[in-house]
Design a protein around this nucleic acid. Structure first.
Length: 424
RNA sequence: GGAGGCGUCGCCUAGUCCGGUCGAUGGCGCCCGCCUGCUAAGCGGGUUGAGGGUAAACCCCUCUCGCGAGUUCAAAUCUCGCCGCCUCCGCCA
């Protein structure tokens, strides 16, 4: 949610952000009008209410005729108070609903434009040259089937398209990767968390995901939503609280399954586990002061790179363009790993600085140096997900269909340094 | 699923039966000051959060006793619904 005071005093800042995101600025004027209504109706109610309270006090003291006379007046006043209060509540609710439709501001440093207007910040490692090595790389699904690691067919049989089983070394690799992620996070002061994956509407809405709710699974009774990332329960964790960030960021590492409908992506990435309805992820989540947020964002990015380095992958870091930020993000960096059979970089991690946008919606505050309450900043970033297996399998494959295991993962596959094809 | 109990400004707590000096009591903790070689103790004061009047300070006002609705001139207090926690029973793992 955008600060109402900022919107009132500097509506052009908000309009500029909307324009950079490629959205209409009409909503700004609607919200401003609603804000005016809200404040005037609150003032009307409050002055009547003050009068009513004053009279009520006199009634308590008065006796006889004087009392009857007072009661005559207070009766009509009572109805007016009720009516103006209802009007004020309504105006407040309308303002709230409209202003929740506004996305976050955007960083001046974020590149302006759409999905393809990202800026490459850094390239790390070199994509393997399979032509030079003299063999045609197999894609991750073919490798996964050879190794007995991925079973898409049976996933589809029991749950439909975009579902899968990870089995054998596939299951071990994923568990290893996630455990490695948790271990790294804990080393860096994160509190590990295994979160609920079903959340209430206000939590899903508070994180800004309900606007794009085509992608969210919804349960009818009771009304609950399956989370697409543990960012959602971790943001909701401190909802309606005043937390202490005076000693630096409060950091959580969430381990959860994630669910996405992928409603708008028919026909895209239909093969293998690149884009699936359910996957597992370890997500970093930080609460900190607004002043500390940009520095914390860089730290989260650093920890993502550290994990990717452990997987021995070639990847690049991109600064996401304003049109591709999502509702809550003020700035976003993605790490994209090279996927040999696609000849392309694909997103493996994403870290967002949501500034105080989610915190305003979820009512999460801290006390500043002067003891005043202020919304915190929230940030998130990926430490490992199922999709990483795609890049790991393809990057480390050998001509015979075996796959070399990155050193960091070997303890999790029984110490093996190579995974061999199995007979089906 | 059934029955009962509970929910007060960080924590504990008085108040709720019998509506109006509750515009909320006291303690603990915390903050400021005084006192004191230092510390502790003692003494005095402060200490829920939000919104509006204002751009801000001071100040003033309104809301806030789990949430919402109702009764009433007036609700922490009475009524109804909901949520959460606890205890017991049933059922399932």
């Amino acid at each position: 949610m955008i600060d109402a005071k900022l919107l009132r005093e500097n509506p052009d800042v908000v309009r500029a952000a909307l324009t950079k995101r490629g959205e209409s600025t009409d909503l700004v004027d609607q919200v401003l009008a609603a804000d005016g209504d809200r404040r005037s109706s609150i003032a009307a109610f409050e002055s009547l209410r003050a009068e009513q309270k004053g009279l009520g006090k006199q009634v308590a003291q008065a006796k006889g005729d004087e009392r009857t006379a007072l009661l005559e007046r207070t009766k009509t006043l009572s109805a007016e108070v009720k009516a103006t209060e209802a009007a004020a509540n309504e105006a407040e609710a309308r303002f709230d609903e409209l202003s929740r439709g506004l996305p976050n501001l955007v960083s001046d440093e974020a590149p302006v434009g759409g999905e393809k207007d990202f800026v490459v910040v850094e390239e790390i490692g070199k994509p393997r040259d399979f032509a030079a090595e003299g063999f045609e790389p197999r894609d991750h699904l073919e490798l996964g089937e050879l190794l007995g690691a991925i079973d898409m067919e049976r996933g589809a049989k029991i749950s439909g398209a975009r579902f899968y089983f990870l089995k054998g070394v596939g299951a071990l690799l994923q568990l290893g990767m996630l455990q490695l992620a948790i271990a790294q996070a804990v080393e860096n002061g994160f509190t590990p968390m295994i979160t609920p994956t079903l959340v209430k509407p206000e939590v899903m809405g508070g994180t800004g995901y309900l606007n794009a709710h085509d992608d969210v699974y919804r349960l009818e009774e009771p009304e609950l939503y399956l989370v697409g990332t543990s960012e959602v329960p971790l943001a909701g964790y401190h909802m309606d609280e005043i937390i202490d960030v005076s000693n630096g960021p409060v950091r959580y590492a969430g381990w959860s399954s994630c669910y996405r409908r992928e409603a708008g992506s028919h026909g895209k990435d239909t093969r293998g586990i690149i884009r699936v309805h359910q996957f597992d992820k370890v997500e970093m989540f930080s609460y900190c002061s607004l002043e500390d947020a940009e520095a914390e964002h860089q730290r989260l990015l650093g920890w993502e790179k550290e994990m990717l380095d452990k997987m021995e992958l070639a990847y690049r870091v991109i600064d996401t363009a304003t049109g591709d930020l999502g509702t809550s993000a003020y700035r976003k960096f993605d790490c994209e790993a090279w996927v040999p059979t696609q000849g392309a970089y694909r997103e493996l991690t994403s870290t967002s600085n949501c500034t105080d946008y989610q915190a305003r919606r979820l009512n999460i505050r801290h006390r500043d140096a002067e003891g005043r309450t202020r919304p915190v900043a929230t940030l998130n970033g990926t430490l490992a997900t199922t999709r990483w297996l795609v890049a790991i399998l393809e990057t480390h494959q050998q001509a015979d269909g075996s796959v070399r295991v990155p050193a960091a993962l070997r303890p999790y596959v029984g110490g093996r340094d190579v995974l061999e094809p199995v007979a089906r």
